[in-house]
Design a protein around this nucleic acid. Structure first.
Lengths: 256, 256
DNA sequence: GCAATAGTGTCTCTGAGACACTATGAG
DNA sequence: CTCATAGTGTCTCAGAGACACTATTGC
């Protein structure tokens, strides 16, 4: 039966339909692990992912990605945002759709076609929620740990794909801003990139990102009310110039 | 109701489920429009998209993207490949998933969550099929023309998104190879890129892509059996060096 | 002064960009 | 010879990469 004939005789009741269209959300955050309070130093940072522990069949007791079923009156994106809000209390965050997971048999409950999103959330936003909700079944895990766990459904695969996507986007887009305050020091930016993409290394990072003509425009120096360049010594003795992302998004090309 | 409680009481029959999970496939091809047969010149090329004309409700008579409903025993990707084969006779082509379309009301038949793929097909592969199938309801349209048509459902949006995706990928990945023979001249590659991304312009294209160290490895010269560099004068008086894509895929970064 | 991070000087080599030039070969 | 396309010479300037050096400031 080809498409034309199937459509010409279309009647929904003729067909087996999916049993649900869930969204699964991979929520990444970067947590700062400041070693000693007295010391003024860049805190060590770690990429973590939020997982929930399932309370019921299937995969009872297993850790899984948060998510939930799409309603008839919402789009997948709305669904994901709703679930994100319900499960973490977080809204207005960077979220993007990245893949569909539809392998037959991936969900014992039936024919479920799952839609995976990546959300990038500041640590702060999650901490508030986690304090309020003392259920032990939602927790942040270091990504490496989560990757080696056996998650429910095909969530290990989804997590791996999501991590790949975020690593790619970290280098090709300006999503680093999702993990940074509005105004930040170059060293913070560098550290965020390295936290997500461990093998990222640029020896002359400052120069490239500031004094380069081609790159110029991704970030810009921040000035205070008096027109002076704004500095901060949050993380260092010598105060560092603060920068902010601009709206400029360079267009990359392998053909340059 | 939050996710945990909904799962703890899970029963498929409690929920309204989607009425279908179709795939829609945006099939791009580049057609060569050789002006005069006598002349040895690069043929003009044009990016075209394959559309079908619907025979039945809804959107009867409207042009639409090919596609069809997913079966319970296949993944979305399999579904798209099956539909592509059924509707165009084409298989083993480059195809990638790029987005989900789930806005409520997008399909008058019900709650349909559609999954959009882009396929890149060589002109040849489509021509054979189109000759065999003389139904007047499948045709190639120049992209610009298709963009200004009123397509069925939200297919105009899908087409626009697909074009954006292909343009991005044309510059950031080596998908150009999907439109080229195994061995090709630099001018062909350049022309393919320009066909898909009209404002792409590199004055010293040859040098950049060949003699550059950083770029070195995307393509390589082709040698014949005797170890001589292979040339072709298909498109020019002076024979041009032939190249082939390698497996190398450079990693792009805005932080370089 | 020391420690710790911010930021610069300087040198070399490669590549981008521009543009004129030479090379090849069919008609 | 002419023409169209392939490909090179050459010059300038910007940027990468490396590494040592100076700057700032809390303690």
């Amino acid at each position: 039966m080809n498409d034309a004939s199937s459509r010409s005789t279309y009647d929904a009741s003729n067909y087996r339909t999916p049993d649900g269209a869930p969204s699964d959300i991979v929520i990444f955050t970067i947590v700062s692990k400041s070693k000693e309070q007295g010391k003024k130093a860049l805190p060590a940072r770690e990429l973590q992912v939020l997982l929930i522990q399932r309370k019921s069949w299937p995969f009872e007791g297993c850790w899984a990605l948060p998510g939930g079923f799409c309603h008839e009156d919402e789009s997948m994106e709305s669904c994901a945002r709703r679930e994100l809000l319900e499960e973490t209390g977080v809204q207005d965050v960077h979220m993007e759709y990245f893949n569909v997971y539809s392998k037959p048999g991936r969900d014992p409950r039936g024919w479920m076609i799952s839609h995976a999103f990546v959300a990038l959330v500041e640590e702060q936003q999650l901490l508030g929620r986690k304090a309020a909700d003392d259920a032990a079944d939602v927790r942040l895990f270091p990504v490496e740990a989560a990757l080696s766990m056996e998650l429910a459904f095909d969530h290990s695969v989804i997590l791996r794909d999501a991590l790949g996507k975020v690593r790619e986007n970290m280098l090709t887009t300006t999503i680093a801003k999702q993990f940074l305050p509005q105004e930040f020091a170059i060293s913070e930016l560098y550290q965020v990139i390295q936290t997500v993409v461990p093998d990222f290394q640029e020896q002359n990072f400052i120069r490239k990102i500031t004094s380069t003509k081609s790159r110029k425009g991704i970030i810009e120096e921040v000035y205070d009310e008096r027109g002076e360049r704004k500095h901060s010594n949050r993380y260092s003795q010598r105060a560092a110039q603060l920068y902010a992302f601009t709206d400029y998004a360079p267009r990359l090309s392998i053909y340059s």
